[in-house]
Amino acid sequence: MRSLNPACKFAGLLAVTFVLAWRHDPVLNLMVFLLSILLILSAQVKVKSLFLLLSPVLLFAAGMFFTGFYFSAGGDMPVSEKTMAFASSSFWNGLTLASRVLAYAGTGYLFALTTDRILLIRSFQKQFHLPQIFAYSLLAAWGILPHMMQEYRRTRAAFQARGIHTFAASPALLSPLLVKSVRWSEELSIAMESKGFSGHEKRTDFQPVRVHGYDWLFLGFCLIVFPVAAVFI
């Protein structure tokens, strides 16, 4: 999965999620989920960290299961079985909802855990023709994020030291952050410019991100084989 072209991977997995949106089939959902987990594990992601990431998802899925289980559309509800029936029994109904959560989380993690962000943006630039000024500002903004987090904690501590107790992400905390981030982005853009970067000039490409045969195979599977199979399952 790691060696797939990121843009192709993105397009392929997006297609899969669209197909899943139109189908309410728990078996299909669970198959997608299991396949995603297997692929993630085969890409040498640590089992422990995967489990940590999945635990809130599993909790949410369990919640959805019971929601679907107890509140399935019965005859006395405004939504009739005919119009909104996901499945015939309440158990099946719960399973449908829960498995959708799992399938979406699985494909999402599959993409996030096996993709390098620098390669992703370079690939978007090459394959989807994302302008380089956007591509590199995205990368630069990513670099500022850890600063933002640190600055946020610092501001919060400063407020607390002055006897003002704030809740998470309150507007009082965000306004100093906003002032600072404007200044940071200015500094950063000057630094990038002083290294010769401009949004429009031609640049060379150290390791161009290419589309290989196996990327086409993956796309073919996601865009043709999977939708067709989903219809017939």
Partner: peptide, 21 residues
């Protein structure tokens, strides 16, 4: 802290060299 736009040292140097073609 505010001079780099890539993630690793090598990528930052690549960025510089790509800029000057």
């Amino acid at each position: 802290e505010l001079q780099f736009c890539m993630d690793t040292v090598k990528n930052e140097l690549v960025f510089c060299l790509e800029n000057i073609c």
